[in-house]
Design a binder for these strands. Structure first.
Lengths: 126, 126
DNA sequence: ATTTTTGTTATAATGCTTTTAGAACAGAAT
DNA sequence: ATTCTGTTCTAAAAGCATTATAACAAAAAT
């Protein structure tokens, strides 16, 4: 499972890990019902602490993306057929400051939408 | 200047402040060449420390959005006619994990693009 | 059935970030 | 000449991120 952690990044390790797992799920390289590596083995692979991996898993669980089953392991949840309103609301709040920043950088509506479209393609057709 | 800080948020105060200033600039409620309040007066208005406001200002300066002039004040820079490649690259990197998350939540391409479009409208026509 | 592996929990230590506070400085603005 | 400005310094408190050990009980593997 191609995961790369940059210890010197200003993004916390557990967030880097969660983000890359989300990308793998979006790309369907990880599919619903697949099991994730145990926190101990993945921590060993990445050269980080068990608790750091555990924190990433629980962040994903809190977002409803995986289920952590005590004493057993972590399983990827099905991707909803239709997104929930709470998910959409959350994404709107998260996206808001980034869209504002793009505008302030001089990006046009089309430029922003093309960027988003390009990222969607990269994450679904790659 | 309608700025609202939530001290209990998990988003740092200086980031909340920077985000809201960026939104005000995107909405053209703050225009190029406008001066921002002094760090002391804004800190007093918001009930936070001078250094917290100063940190927000310097984050905006590092992003090229304002210029902090020593012993004088902070001024809003012009919005570039055309966005720089480095800005676009940075936004792409920042947007990547959020688009992935949206996909995993079951949002369709159109749903994501509509959300982005709606946020752009909200930030430019409001 | 026994051993291994699993997630959970607890404690502890370290370093970094965030926030606040107070003070002093020198240049700009009034 | 006075006030206001951003800058710099020191200091402290609180929280977060990361690592390290260790122990526990249940699931999985043998």
């Amino acid at each position: 499972m191609h995961i790369q952690i940059e210890p010197a990044s200003d993004i916390p390790i557990y967030t880097q890990l969660a983000n890359q797992l989300i990308a793998l799920i979006a790309k369907k390289e990880l599919k619903p019902n697949d099991t994730l590596p145990s926190v101990r083995s993945l921590a060993a692979d990445l050269g980080v602490n068990m608790h750091t991996v555990n924190k990433a898993y629980h962040e994903l669980q809190q977002k409803g993306i995986i289920s952590v089953i005590p004493k057993s392991g972590a399983v990827i949840n099905p991707i909803p057929e239709v997104s929930s309103e709470s998910s959409r609301d959350r994404m709107r709040e998260t996206l808001h400051p980034l869209i504002a920043e793009s505008i302030v950088y001089g990006m046009s509506r089309d430029e922003i939408l093309s960027l988003a479209s390009s990222l969607i393609s990269e994450l679904t057709e790659e």
